[in-house]
């Protein structure tokens, strides 16, 4: 089992969600986060004066998948999250030791 943690542009969430549904990913969690990578911030204008916005709104997706699903899911996220401009985000992958479905006590792959 692998855990995929993807930091994406908020506007890309709908497309990614649709693409992952096709791959039968059993559930995903998202959080609204603030952050910056190489994109840094942007400039807003309020009553004519420039305001630097350092942290940008991003979305963090967390998914746990079977080992054999990993490549397909990561490829799909990359395709759907990419605009080609700085700020498209990053993906991190972790090993998962175990999983437990609370309702039934199933463990491991069965719990996904």
């Amino acid at each position: 089992m692998k855990k995929i943690e993807a930091f994406i542009r908020p506007e890309k969430l709908d497309d990614i969600k649709d693409a992952l549904a096709v791959l039968h990913v059993n559930g995903l969690s998202i959080s609204q986060i603030m952050g910056f990578g190489s994109q840094k911030g942007w400039k807003e204008y309020i009553r004519g004066s420039e305001v630097e916005v350092n942290f940008l709104a991003k979305i963090k997706i967390e998914i746990v998948v079977l080992d054999e699903q990993l490549d397909a899911v990561v490829t799909s996220i990359c395709e759907n999250a990419r605009t080609g401009e700085v700020g498209d985000g990053k993906i991190f992958i972790y090993n998962i030791e175990d999983a437990i479905r609370i309702r039934t006590n199933e463990r491991g792959n069965d719990a996904l």
Binding site: P10, E11, K12, D14, D15, Q32, I33, M34, E44, Y45, I46, V53, F55, A57, T83
Partner: peptide
Amino acid sequence: RDEDTGLDVSEHGEIAYPAFNGMD
């Protein structure tokens, strides 16, 4: 893409609400 991002940013460069986690 602007439709996905929202017209507040694409047409006005201004957002109605700050993120509720207080980071901005």
